[in-house]
């Protein structure tokens, strides 16, 4: 497969996932804050911007964190490269550039989603966002479902998996990181703390699943354990990284042997993935609770970024494409 095509599939997938994750975080916040006292409202919106890591950019455009400013920023502010609309646009641009690689159904779904977010009545969304949020979520999930159902599970599909799960692992880490910071300011067992835990789980679509594991208490330790280490919940970090590992292995076994990449970047990315997975598998959750959570997640996020970089180097056009300058020429001057 063309390196550029692999890269586009990977990013198409990451951007769709990113759009869905941001939308879900917004949804949960709208719900959660309905039960919040007025003075806590401001505090309730700021963490969303922290999750995407865009505080500085946000501050350039808005004086304060409100439902309206944060939603606007996360949904469609033109300066925000990670706004939902920007993500879906870029996912579609990537899909368009590999139109012949994906199925017609995938293309139709991503188009529909694109025209949905482009054409939506923005004022209406800010007044009552829920329908729009669920449309975006449904659009993304339908796209992912159609992808699995209509595309051969070969090399192209594996790059899509890689993108989706790496993005998801990263977002779960960030949600944990931010929500945990708030949680650490609250006393365990208070209603506020419980609400935060519920919001954290819902941000990862994990509330119902967590509840079904009847043995688990709604406390910081078990929740963190579930979101980090569940081997069966599809948004848990370990689950996602395992899927990445699976996809990366499939890709490299298809390409190895005749692989002419001399620097062994493919092997490198596999090693980092493997190491990160083992680290999680042998993790004692008690070791990373409370104040230790943030440093641990920082470390984990760094690993995830490194995996992304190594995949880029192994399979994509790693070199930056520069214009081709013409060489100098010598004057004939004797």
């Amino acid at each position: 497969m063309l390196s550029r095509v692999a890269e586009s599939l990977y990013w198409m997938s990451r951007y769709i996932e990113r759009a869905e994750d941001i939308t879900r975080i917004l949804t949960v916040n709208f719900h959660a804050l309905l039960d919040t006292r007025l003075e806590d409202l401001k505090r309730g919106w700021q963490p969303l911007i922290e999750i995407t890591g865009d505080q500085a950019l946000f501050a350039q455009h808005y004086p304060e964190y409100t439902a309206q400013t944060v939603s606007e920023f996360l949904l469609w502010h033109p300066a925000n490269p990670n706004a939902v609309i920007a993500c879906i646009t870029r996912a579609r641009e990537n899909a368009r550039s590999v139109r012949e690689q994906i199925s017609s159904e995938m293309w139709e779904h991503i188009n529909r989603l694109y025209f949905l977010v482009r054409g939506v009545n923005r004022a209406g969304v800010l007044r009552g966002p829920h329908e729009f949020f669920s449309q975006v979520r449904d659009g993304s999930q339908a796209f992912q479902g159609v992808t699995d159902a209509t595309m051969p599970h070969g090399e192209a599909w594996q790059f899509i998996q890689l993108g989706k799960f790496l993005e998801r692992a990263e977002k779960t880490c960030r949600i944990l990181d931010v929500k945990y910071a708030t949680l650490n300011t609250l006393r365990e067992g208070t209603p506020e703390a419980s609400l935060q835990l519920i919001a954290m789980l819902k941000s990862c679509s994990a509330f119902e699943a967590f509840r079904k594991e009847s043995a688990l208490q709604l406390q910081a330790g078990p929740v963190a354990h579930y979101l980090l280490l569940s081997p069966i919940f599809p948004r848990a970090v370990l689950f996602c990284l395992k899927r990445c590992q699976h996809a990366a292995t499939a890709i490299s076994s298809a390409t190895l042997g005749e692989n002419s990449r001399p620097d062994g970047a493919a092997a490198l990315s596999l090693r980092t993935l493997g190491r990160t997975c083992s680290e999680l598998e042998y993790l004692d959750i008690e070791d990373v609770l409370d104040a230790r959570m943030h440093p641990f997640l920082t470390h984990l996020l760094r690993q995830i970024n490194q995996i992304g970089d190594e995949i880029t180097r192994a399979y994509f056009n790693a070199q930056i494409i520069q214009p081709s300058p013409r060489r100098q020429q010598a004057q004939q001057q004797q």
Binding site: M1, L2, A6, I251, A254, T255, E258, S260, N317
Partner: peptide, 8 residues
């Protein structure tokens, strides 16, 4: 040549 994930 084309640049592919498996080389040229």
């Amino acid at each position: 040549y084309t640049r592919t994930t498996t080389g040229l």
